[in-house]
Amino acid sequence: MAHDASGGEIVAAAGTTGGKKAGFFARIVIFIRQVIAELRKVVTPTRKELLKFTAVVLGFVVIMMALVYGLDYLFSWVTTVVFGVPS
């Protein structure tokens, strides 16, 4: 069985020759080890980065809301002009 850089086992690619397939529970254990190894690579952002990312996301959401509102207003105006006001 091969190992990755973090020391976790790597499951062999499907269709390769070279040994017996690991059992069901062994594959679950390997998966959990790989998840833990990947979680150790995660870098948490600093407070400054987190505030910047939050501001960017909120700004984007506000812009998209304005765009959708503008299109909704335009389409409702167009349908009113084309079909008239219901009586």
Rank of each mutant, 00 (worst) to 15 (best):
A66R: 06
T16W: 14
F75E: 12
A26N: 09
V11P: 02
V85T: 12
G15L: 03
E49W: 03
F75Q: 13
H3T: 10
T54N: 04
T79R: 08
T54K: 12
T46K: 05
R33D: 07
I32Q: 08
F75C: 14
M1F: 10
L74S: 04
T17K: 03
I30E: 02
G7S: 08
V35E: 06
A2K: 15
S76W: 10
L67H: 01
D72E: 11
F31Q: 07
V42W: 10
V29W: 04
V85P: 02
A55N: 14
D72W: 06
V82N: 02
K21M: 10
S87A: 15
R33C: 03
L71S: 11
V11G: 01
V85K: 12
Y69Q: 03
E38F: 08
A37S: 07
T44C: 01
T79M: 09
T46G: 04
W77N: 05
Y69D: 00
V81T: 13
R47W: 02
G8K: 12
F53L: 12
V62L: 10
I63D: 03
I63H: 00
R40G: 06
T54P: 00
L39K: 14
I32E: 05
A37P: 00
E9H: 03
E38T: 10
F31I: 03
M1D: 04
A55H: 12
H3E: 12
F83R: 07
T79Q: 13
L51M: 15
L67M: 05
V82W: 04
T79I: 13
P86L: 07
A12D: 13
V56L: 15
V68L: 08
A26S: 11
F75H: 10
P45R: 02
I28S: 01
V85Y: 10
S76N: 14
V11W: 06
V11L: 15
E9T: 09
I63Q: 02
A14S: 08
G23L: 09
G7D: 12
K48A: 15
R33M: 04
A13L: 15
K52R: 11
L39T: 05
A55R: 14
V43A: 06
S87W: 11
D72C: 08
I28G: 03
D72H: 06
G18I: 11
V81G: 02
K48I: 06
V85A: 08
R33A: 02
V43T: 13
V42R: 11
L50G: 05
G70M: 05
D4Y: 10
V57Q: 07
W77K: 07
G18P: 05
L39C: 14
K41T: 08
A66V: 14
G8P: 01
D72K: 03
R40N: 06
A14D: 10
G70W: 01
I10D: 02
K48Y: 11
K52W: 03
M65G: 05
L58R: 10
V78P: 01
G23E: 12
V61I: 14
A66G: 09
F75K: 03
L58P: 05
G19F: 15
L71P: 00
Y69I: 06
A12R: 14
I28T: 03
S76G: 07
G19V: 13
M1T: 09
E38N: 12
V29N: 08
Y69F: 14
V11R: 09
G7W: 13
K20W: 07
G7E: 11
A2P: 14
G70E: 02
M64T: 01
